[in-house]
Computed example of a mutant assay.
Amino acid sequence: MEEIERWLMFSYWGSYLKEDYMQVGLDVTEILMKHWGQVEWLRGALFSYDEGLKDVGSFDKIRDEVLSNQKRYRLYDVTFFNPTVTEEIYVNRLDIFDAMLTIQEYDDLKYFQTEDPALNERRTQELLDVFTDVAGLPAIEELWMPDRNLTAFMGHPAYLYRPRPLYERVEDSLYTLKTKDEVARLVQEFETHVPTEWVIDYLQHRLGADAVQEMADGKVRVRFYDRELTRSKVNTREFLCTFEKDVDQFCREKGVTLYKG
């Protein structure tokens, strides 16, 4: 059967990350090991997929391997067998490089679409718990899951404001790193002129109070799905376009233009 790669979680962190991406990737690895257990394979993916370590249960060993050979691990991936699925081996892979972070799976989300709604909800919640822990890292300012439908977000509210001309470049790894100054300016402008309370009220009014939570460090968690990961409440991309227009209108009434691109 053909493998269909999906991103369970992702962040275009090259457009904002202020810390060393390799170290932040290790922080993410440590969180994933707490949830999913040992690393089945650590590989430096820049030169050869045959290098690295297999069957490692010690995070310290992973960290020491990456930091002792940073040339090899400038781009690296970390493979897990996710233990929350017991029917067969379920592979998740963390990919780290300077432009983005992804956590992938290869079965087109079939393990979230069983015939048992209660099982689907439980697996969705388990993924949300991992997602929340990863997105809670101070260095990570925005994180999404999964990639096609954008069914959940956690980060600073400014990253929900996504003008297409800018984000078409943010989402192209050739240009992601070149957008950092523009993204930083836009985030600062948003946080100056759009109160978090206004954003939360807006989201709760349209998605339901239970879909939006304030988290630590000024972040919010937004669920665009209804109990199960693949049951969307809204078309998220259309929702974000409407949000952008409504933010622009809110700011115009204050005599402010956020994005002048």
Score class of each variant (00 low, 15 high):
residue 1 M to T: 09
residue 1 M to A: 11
residue 2 E to A: 12
residue 3 E to T: 11
residue 4 I to P: 07
residue 5 E to T: 10
residue 8 L to H: 01
residue 9 M to C: 14
residue 9 M to Y: 12
residue 11 S to E: 06
residue 13 W to D: 04
residue 13 W to N: 01
residue 14 G to N: 00
residue 15 S to Y: 06
residue 16 Y to G: 01
residue 16 Y to E: 02
residue 25 G to V: 00
residue 25 G to N: 02
residue 30 E to T: 03
residue 39 V to Y: 02
residue 40 E to H: 10
residue 40 E to C: 08
residue 45 A to G: 11
residue 45 A to T: 13
residue 45 A to Y: 07
residue 46 L to H: 15
residue 48 S to V: 06
residue 49 Y to I: 11
residue 57 G to F: 09
residue 60 D to Y: 06
residue 60 D to L: 09
residue 60 D to V: 04
residue 61 K to T: 14
residue 62 I to A: 05
residue 62 I to W: 04
residue 63 R to G: 09
residue 67 L to W: 09
residue 68 S to V: 02
residue 69 N to V: 01
residue 71 K to P: 10
residue 71 K to C: 14
residue 71 K to N: 13
residue 72 R to M: 15
residue 73 Y to C: 00
residue 73 Y to D: 01
residue 77 D to Q: 13
residue 85 V to A: 07
residue 92 N to G: 09
residue 96 I to M: 07
residue 99 A to C: 10
residue 101 L to T: 02
residue 103 I to A: 00
residue 104 Q to A: 13
residue 105 E to V: 02
residue 105 E to Q: 08
residue 111 Y to S: 07
residue 113 Q to Y: 07
residue 114 T to Q: 08
residue 116 D to S: 06
residue 117 P to N: 01
residue 118 A to N: 10
residue 119 L to F: 08
residue 121 E to L: 08
residue 122 R to K: 13
residue 124 T to A: 07
residue 125 Q to Y: 10
residue 127 L to P: 00
residue 128 L to H: 10
residue 134 V to F: 05
residue 138 P to F: 05
residue 139 A to S: 14
residue 140 I to Y: 02
residue 147 D to K: 02
residue 149 N to E: 15
residue 149 N to I: 14
residue 154 M to T: 00
residue 155 G to H: 01
residue 157 P to K: 00
residue 159 Y to E: 07
residue 165 P to M: 08
residue 167 Y to L: 03
residue 168 E to Y: 11
residue 169 R to T: 06
residue 170 V to K: 00
residue 171 E to F: 10
residue 172 D to R: 02
residue 173 S to N: 14
residue 173 S to P: 15
residue 179 T to R: 01
residue 180 K to R: 15
residue 182 E to V: 08
residue 185 R to M: 13
residue 187 V to K: 06
residue 190 F to I: 03
residue 194 V to H: 00
residue 203 L to A: 03
residue 204 Q to A: 12
residue 210 D to F: 11
residue 210 D to A: 14
residue 211 A to Q: 02
residue 211 A to N: 01
residue 212 V to I: 11
residue 216 A to R: 12
residue 216 A to V: 12
residue 216 A to F: 15
residue 217 D to E: 14
residue 217 D to K: 09
residue 218 G to M: 02
residue 219 K to Y: 08
residue 221 R to D: 11
residue 224 F to A: 03
residue 226 D to R: 06
residue 232 S to I: 10
residue 233 K to W: 05
residue 233 K to V: 05
residue 234 V to Q: 03
residue 238 E to G: 10
residue 239 F to K: 03
residue 246 D to F: 06
residue 249 Q to K: 14
residue 249 Q to H: 14
residue 251 C to E: 05
residue 251 C to N: 05
residue 252 R to M: 10
residue 255 G to Y: 05
residue 256 V to E: 03
residue 256 V to P: 00
residue 257 T to D: 08
residue 261 G to P: 05
residue 261 G to W: 06
